[in-house]
Design a protein around this nucleic acid. Structure first.
Lengths: 202, 202
DNA sequence: CTATAATCGGAAGAGGAGTTCCGGTTCTGC
DNA sequence: GCAGAACCGGAACTCCTCTTCCGATTATAG
């Protein structure tokens, strides 16, 4: 995960065939397990899904956190792709909005991701993926076109995604699609139309 | 907590003087500990703050969860007061907005509350406090006056508070006041001005 | 003041989840 | 085909925190 096919750092010599196969199984199993159970997914369950022993999991990933890290990296790699795609679209508002919807969709696809949105780990991942720059461009473009309120900052995006993650974990009211309402309202708040100055302190 | 001065159910005979004193200390300590450390606060630390042994804590509250429950009840009692206050204010939008700000302020005052917003426990608490009815009134009033988009539902409020709770736990970007920006944007999205229909599915 | 019942304190118990360890097994280069 | 390195499996270990237990202590009734 996070690197091309061989899934091995370029400087190291390639894994033994069986080891490589196991590593791939483990990553796939981790994705599944964390997607379903969130961060509470247990290493033993994960190992069982991958068809290996826990020891083998630990041979490939030193800690549980490292496995989550792989997921996070994956997520941001996907976001970077979406951001590039959005930048190709010239429509100043729609490209931004489209990005937000797709990012939220990806976030919601894995429970562990939604749970982890408040962690510092996430922000580092975003930086690594070069998202900051692209987000800034997306937002700046919309603002110059006058369709987004001028006081929105790129930092607002992680904040919004973080809150969306929480709503995605929510059960009852609004059902599993409540987050769509949430994002919808939020986007309206970000538009230039009728917005009042953002409030910063009481 | 949750009941008037004697802090004892009316049907039981009063606690022994020392027991009552300890119970109060424990509640105060719990508030402090959970406010600072969130749900991770440990029973032993909490007992130390209260100046009693853990056994004494468990004599008064059967589980850790029961203690958190007391906090939650407190929170909703406070919200109910705020809602009544808001209903006395005739201004259809400002009364609603004022309620939201005050509710968020209370939520942010205790880390454990922010953490627990996604739990079902919370929703029961809200019902118990009769918040649903008052919220419905607050929202209906604003909608009839044409200052709030007509497709907002009372269920959106817990959703918004839940997401705010998450933002309040956030560290870096935006600083500790990021949630104010968040709520500010959200409120703009809820206004009638320039809103587009809420999106429910992709 | 004394008897007694309620209460206290904190050491020990219980359970759960991540991590380590090492004998046994399986590849890979020669 | 063989030797040796690399890898595997999963039982055992560690750590952590909630909860229980019971002898010692303290408040209240008579």
């Amino acid at each position: 995960m996070s690197s091309p096919p061989p899934t091995t750092a370029p400087t190291e010599r390639p894994l033994r065939a069986d080891a490589q196969r196991n590593r791939d199984s483990i990553l796939a199993a981790a994705r599944e397990a964390f997607a379903e159970a969130g961060l509470d997914a247990q290493m033993e369950d994960l190992a069982r899904r991958a068809g290996v022993g826990v020891g083998t999991v630990y041979r490939h990933f030193p800690t549980k956190e490292a496995l989550v890290g792989a997921l996070v990296d994956d997520y941001f790699a996907g976001l970077a792709t979406e951001a590039e795609r959005a930048l190709e679209d010239e429509a100043p508002w729609d490209s931004f909005e489209g990005f937000m919807w797709r990012a939220a969709e990806r976030l919601g696809a894995n429970r562990a991701l939604s749970e982890v949105t408040a962690d510092g780990q996430m922000r580092e991942g975003a930086v690594r993926a070069g998202l900051d720059r692209m987000l800034g461009e997306l937002i700046g473009r919309a603002q110059r076109a006058g369709v987004m309120r001028p006081d929105v900052s790129p930092d607002d995006v992680p904040m919004i995604m973080c809150s969306l993650g929480r709503v995605q974990l929510l059960g009852a009211p609004g059902g599993p699609d409540a987050w769509r309402r949430h994002l919808s309202i939020m986007l309206d708040g970000l538009r230039a139309t009728g917005a009042r100055p953002l409030r910063r302190s009481p």
